[in-house]
C-alpha cells in the first residue's frame, strides 16, 4: 500500500464525521459546563488536555496492544487488550460510550472495508468472548486497514479531542475558529503521548482525573442533558 492510500484510509477512518456515534457523546464535557468547571476557552482547553492525557495513558496503551496483537494474528492478545479497557472504565457512562462506539466501528468497517480480522472481531463480540471496546476495536481496524500503529494512535487521540471540541460548540460560546485552533494546538502533543504509550504494557494503564470522574457520575443522574450516557 502506498503512503498516499494509507493517508486516504487514515483520513476516512480517523474522520470525526465517521458515523460511530461519537457526536452523541461529550466525554464528560456536558456536566463540566453545567457545573461551571468549564466556562471559557482556557478551561475548555484544560479539560480536553486531561482527556487526551487519559486517552493516551489508558485507552491508547490498549489500542497499541490490540493493534500489535491483530498484526500477528494473536486473537487472545486482542481480547486481553479489550478486557483491559473495560476493567478500567469505572464509570457507567464511559463504559456505554466505549462499547457503543466500538460496536458501531466494527460494523461499519465490516461493511465498508471487509477484512477477516474485523469479521473475527465482530464474531467474538457476538459470542460474548470479548466486550468490544472502542480502543481495542480501533486497534483491530487499524491492523485490518494496514495502518501503522502511530497513525491509528493519532486517529484515536484526534477522535477524543474532536468529539469534545464539537460538543463544546453546542454547549458553550466557542467559535468554530477557536475550536480548530484548539485542535491544532493539542495535536502538537501527540508525539510525546505516543512515545510514552508505545513503551507501556497493559498493567501500566493509568489515569488521574478525580474531578472528571466525579463529573461523569453527576451526568448519569442529570435530569436535563443533550448528550447520551
Amino acid at each position: 500500500m502506498t503512503s498516499l492510500v494509507r493517508a486516504m484510509r487514515l483520513l476516512q477512518f480517523g474522520d470525526s464525521m465517521l458515523p460511530v456515534g461519537s457526536f452523541a457523546f461529550s466525554n464528560g464535557l456536558e456536566s463540566a459546563v453545567q457545573q461551571k468547571v468549564v466556562r471559557d476557552l482556557p478551561t475548555l482547553r484544560e479539560f480536553i488536555e486531561t482527556a487526551l492525557v487519559q486517552a493516551a495513558s489508558c485507552d491508547g496503551i490498549a489500542l497499541l496492544a490490540a493493534h500489535r496483537a491483530a498484526c500477528v494474528g494473536d486473537a487472545a492478545g486482542v481480547i486481553a487488550a479489550d478486557h483491559a479497557v473495560l476493567l478500567r472504565k469505572l464509570n457507567e457512562e464511559m463504559r456505554t460510550m466505549t462499547l457503543r462506539m466500538g460496536r458501531k466501528l466494527g460494523e461499519l468497517v465490516a461493511h465498508a472495508a471487509p477484512h477477516p480480522l474485523v469479521t473475527r472481531w465482530l464474531a467474538d463480540i457476538e459470542a460474548g468472548a470479548t466486550p468490544g471496546t472502542h480502543p481495542a476495536g480501533l486497534g483491530v481496524v487499524g491492523a485490518a486497514l494496514g495502518l501503522r500503529e502511530d497513525d491509528i494512535f493519532a486517529a484515536h487521540q484526534y477522535g477524543v479531542a474532536a468529539m469534545m471540541a464539537s460538543a463544546a460548540l453546542r454547549l458553550m460560546r466557542v467559535s468554530h475558529l477557536d475550536g480548530q485552533a484548539l485542535l491544532h494546538a493539542l495535536g502538537g502533543t501527540a508525539d510525546r503521548a505516543y512515545a510514552t504509550a508505545a513503551r507501556a504494557s497493559l498493567d501500566d494503564m493509568a489515569t488521574f482525573a478525580p474531578i472528571a470522574d466525579i463529573l461523569a457520575s453527576v451526568h448519569v443522574n442529570a435530569h436535563v442533558r443533550m448528550f447520551m450516557n
Binding site: V53, D203, A212
Partner: peptide, 17 residues
C-alpha cells in the same frame, strides 16, 4: 484502577484533575 500522580510532570491544578 491505577492512579499515578506526578505533579512535576503534569500539574494537578488542571480543572479536570
Amino acid at each position: 484502577e491505577k492512579l499515578v500522580v506526578e505533579p512535576a510532570v503534569r500539574g494537578v491544578g488542571n480543572v479536570a484533575v
